[in-house]
Design a protein around this nucleic acid. Structure first.
Lengths: 225, 225
DNA sequence: CAGATCGAAATTGTATACAAGAACGCATAA
DNA sequence: TTATGCGTTCTTGTATACAATTTCGATCTG
């Protein structure tokens, strides 16, 4: 329980950024954060450095820390990589899964089914995370599992936003079933195809979602308005 | 020019670790580093944090920073991921490469050929890096390019160690030629296969290399004299 | 009135001082 | 001789003080 102040600050900020409580582009004032957490600037700076390294904030030299404004194009790029990493996890899982991991995977899948039957979108979100984590853990490559989890965390806000799209849960669940079956059957190529599609769907949904919502002129629409 | 002290320290330490001038398991004393670089502990700590985030050093709470001792198993895992990322770069490059990037790729390839003809292993190493970087840049996905470059940097010492293996340069060069041809022809699946093999060869060479050298140096072997 | 230039305030980057915990050694006892 | 307990010392973690740079605003000039 003797937690380091810097870690407390980092975790709290991480949550704020990931959950969208601090919006992209906002500047993170060291002094203000220090006061908010009741510490000095030193642990705050340490936390900001760590967040910068994990890509959540951008550190402009002598200008402060800004919540990284990830453009639509980059999010699509990230989903592209995410699909590949997750597909590799699934491929290796299909190749190497053992009894223990199989049990965990089935359990996580069942938990998703339960949440879906209760139409509890929030619970489904969390259990969906656990389901994917179970795949990562089953891949037998801890480094890959960590990398994939990292990227997944960075994509959290963009996935979260489109889980409320109509019928997405039903579709997601059906894909989960296919994934589980393919992994247990050791069908590597099949599970890779399913997972890639499973992830890329999210990227596409995100893309069409933001295009329908808002014309954020950050990148594309050059001379708009 | 007006470089930050913390960045200078970080870059210098990065080089020391990557080039093996500081061995895995060694503790990085903040005060000693501060004196060595003529700065205070503050920028040193910042540098260590950044290095920890990029996985080069391990930060044990209230115990200091240690150069991360990456086990053989993890290196093999990292090569497994590396092969996948690089193959994805190549696939996307084959799909989307344009004239400018093609020129750069050809130029980088020719530079490798020149270095090989002069049997200059050191020059070949650097130009090989540039060749792979050219592929990353041509993939049209800046995020993927950055991730791949990052991982490549982390694997540097393990790749470097086996470039001196006999005839590896010749084999490498031949694979480069196949990669260039496949990318220019837009043969996605073909280039993926070649690249995966190209990278995994390195992982296997590393594996057999260390197995031939030493029995079980699973952890530190830091103070080996 | 517009623009530039200079200056003050605010903020980041670095150094130093202080607090707390861990490593190490020494002494003592069995 | 060895193991254990205590205390010193060294190192990390945090706070504060100082330096340097940027930003914003006011004033002056065309």
């Amino acid at each position: 329980m003797n937690e380091r102040a810097a870690d407390r600050v980092r975790e709290a900020l991480e949550e704020d950024v990931v959950l969208g409580r601090i919006l992209p582009g906002n500047r993170l004032d060291e002094l203000a954060l220090a006061e908010r957490f009741g510490v000095s600037r030193t642990p705050v700076r340490e936390a900001l450095n760590r967040l910068a390294a994990s890509g959540l904030v951008e550190l402009r030299a002598r200008r402060g820390a800004f919540v990284k404004a990830i453009g639509i194009a980059q999010v699509v790029e990230m989903f592209e990589v995410m699909a590949e990493l997750e597909a590799l996890c699934a491929r290796l899982a299909a190749r190497r899964i053992n009894g223990e991991h199989t049990a965990r995977l089935l359990q996580a899948h069942q938990a998703c089914i339960d949440a879906a039957e209760q139409a509890d979108a929030d619970a489904y979100y969390h259990r969906n995370e656990a389901f994917h984590q179970a795949i990562y853990d089953a891949c037998g490559n801890r480094f890959l599992a960590e990398q994939t989890e990292n990227l997944r965390n960075r994509l959290t806000p963009y996935r979260r936003m489109q889980l409320h799209v109509r019928n997405r849960i039903v579709g997601s669940l059906s894909e989960h079933q296919q994934i589980v079956d393919a992994i247990r059957a050791g069908e590597e190529d099949l599970v890779v195809a399913i997972v890639k599609n499973h992830i890329l769907i999210q990227g596409e949904k995100f893309h069409s979602l933001v295009q329908g919502l808002d014309a954020t002129p950050s990148v594309s629409t050059a001379g708009a308005s």
